[in-house]
């Protein structure tokens, strides 16, 4: 009798198994799984779009690059890790000089034949969107695969929301305002014109 009571008390204090709801386990798993599309959506809405008006203006940036590329890089550019390459996050307006399936050439001075900026409107690859804004930090992501999935998700947002309208409306001669990220790997080819992945664009 005493032994049975003791066993009962021990079993209550130290149960042989726990019953856990499957819902709770699934919720816990979901909580620790990084959802790149969801994160990209929040980042796009809450950080990227609000940051666009505060970016350096294209005419200021291009004038600075023409005067002294190294000083312009120091003042307006940012790079990631040990890379020699760097990014500009900027906005501006101008006139469409030419448009194709993959590129829209923009002249900042209306009537000028100089192409200052090329908006890239083909398939978006790589990390220009993720890293170009300078708003995300690789150190916040324990697993780099998550950080890379985020790149794909952000590229998808640009391809599905920004590019279709832009490609449809941007015809030669149209006035255009834009904001985006330019990646500079090779200064001899990437600075003039600046090649931009557009994050926002309006065509009049």
């Amino acid at each position: 009798m005493i032994a049975s009571t003791l066993m009962l008390v021990v079993t209550i204090w130290f149960p042989l198994f726990h019953v856990v709801s499957l819902k709770a386990v699934t919720a816990e798993k979901k909580a620790v799984t990084f959802n790149a599309p969801d994160f990209a959506e929040g980042f796009w809405t809450n950080q990227v779009i609000p940051a666009l008006p505060g970016t350096v203006k294209a005419d200021v940036l291009i004038a600075a690059i023409q005067t002294d590329p190294a000083a312009a890089k120091k003042k307006y550019g940012h790079s990631v890790g040990l890379s020699d390459g760097y990014f500009y996050f900027f906005s501006g307006s101008g006139q469409v000089a030419a448009a194709s399936d993959d590129e829209i050439s923009v002249s900042l001075t209306p009537g000028s034949t100089n192409v200052d900026v090329v908006l890239e409107v083909g398939l978006v690859f790589g990390n220009a969107v993720r890293d170009g804004t300078g708003l995300l930090n690789a150190n916040d992501y324990p697993n780099s695969q998550d950080f890379n999935d985020l790149s794909s998700a952000l590229n998808h947002i640009v391809e599905s929301r920004v590019l279709p309208v832009l490609k449809q409306r941007a015809k030669a001669g149209a006035r255009i305002s834009f904001a985006g990220c330019a990646e500079v790997d090779d200064e001899s080819s990437d600075l003039k014109p600046l090649k931009v992945v557009p994050l926002q664009a309006e065509v009049q």
Partner: peptide
């Protein structure tokens, strides 16, 4: 090569394999 933790190692110097293979893919 990285470890999946941001508070164990003091620092991690990692090749940007993803970007490198985007270029290779292109």
């Amino acid at each position: 090569r990285e470890i999946n933790s941001t508070n164990a190692a003091t620092s991690q110097m990692l090749s940007d394999s993803y970007s490198g293979c985007v270029k290779l893919g292109q």
